[in-house]
Write a protein that binds this DNA or RNA. Structure first.
Lengths: 205, 205
DNA sequence: GCAGTGACGATATTGTTAAGTCGTCACCAA
DNA sequence: TTGGTGACGACTTAACAATATCGTCACTGC
């Protein structure tokens, strides 16, 4: 039986292990309640009923635990986005809903789980693996949307695919980056609609 | 004779005053060399040969001095951009060169005057007046470019002007925001070309 | 081999104290 | 009135010592 894929960097030891799951759950609760900085590894150990040394058999560092929680948050966001991509509507419609969904997911994290939002900010600004994986997944989804639209005849094909994808990825930044999103929460609805509209107009055959 | 317009917030006393000019020059040199935080008002006073109390007759706070220097930096950037806008070429050509020029100006500041770059970062992230003025100037230039292109028949007119301008302003963010620009200096040429291309395709009649 | 830990070195953080900095007040000289 | 300042209160920062935290080592029990 193959090992389960690890969702984040810095993990070691057996992938499918009851203690690992317990550590992640304890970390999730503590980070939501107290924040990453205010939570010590000793706090997690105590909550589970084991030693800090044993926690380090599963995670190479406290940051690795943070990565795991951060990966879960970002995975929730990409899951919402993949649900939109999987809907049986036109590529244009899915792209049009992608922008506000992305921004809304980030805004939800900001308003409802501020301390987890702070971990995501750290992951993105300090280039944690979870942050770079998230960016790669967004790129992958963008590319899939553009290819699907081209194959359906909805989008133009003249411009090189890489150039189009690079440009669209850049337009996502203001809504994907947690710190930038923080600064524009009051205009995000109009901004995402305007940018999605602009991108769609640029893709017309 | 009317008073000279003040370039930044937080200034007081006579606008055209030798001491004010001296303070600004001393601040410019010190901020370039030591940075904003490392420079004290006492440093500036000593360099000019007057007291800190007298400096506060011209500036309401140390931040106000920082605003003045920051406004000069950002004014240099907008001057470069306005030079592009003033050229006798098509609106499309000017818009195409606007993006790389914006990013290049920011990159120049980052590489050549790192400590002034840091002040600009503070101005933008802490919503100093200089930062918000800069953003307003960028918006104004974008609007002018779009209107000029529409009047010349180069750009489509069907989409509401405000929506188009809002979207284009959003696409500028990754290149205009000093912290975001810091993170993408190695791909900025390709990124600005791709985004400018996308915006231009969206504007075709 | 798996599950687990106490002790400990290295480093970071916290709290306290002293020093530095910001910005104002009340004043002076010409 | 203009040009200018020393003194000072309020606040921030730096230095330092004590304490806390991170992460590893060498070990134990089953």
């Amino acid at each position: 039986m193959t090992a389960l894929p690890r969702p984040a960097a810095g993990q070691r030891g057996p992938a499918d292990h009851e203690r690992r799951a317990q550590i992640v759950e304890a970390a999730d609760q503590h980070f939501r309640h107290y924040g990453f900085q205010k939570t010590t590894v000793a706090d997690l150990a105590k909550a589970i009923g084991l030693s800090t040394a044993y926690i380090y058999k599963f995670f190479s560092s406290k940051q690795a635990i943070g990565e795991a929680i951060c990966a879960r948050c970002l995975s929730e966001i990409t899951t919402r986005l993949r649900a939109i991509m999987a809907e049986p509507t036109s590529a244009a419609d899915r792209l049009r809903r992608f922008y506000p969904a992305l921004a809304q997911a980030g805004a939800d994290l900001f308003f409802q789980e501020r301390r987890l939002h702070d971990i995501v900010v750290t992951a993105v600004t300090e280039n944690w693996h979870a942050g770079t994986t998230y960016e790669a997944e967004l790129r992958d989804m963008v590319r899939t949307l553009v290819i699907t639209g081209r194959e359906a005849g909805e989008f133009e094909r003249e411009t090189p695919l890489d150039e189009v994808c690079l440009a669209i990825e850049e337009t996502l930044w203001p809504f994907a980056h947690p710190l930038m999103l923080e600064e524009k929460l009051d205009t995000v609805d109009a901004a995402t609609a305007a940018v999605a509209g602009l991108v769609l107009r640029s893709l017309r055959p």
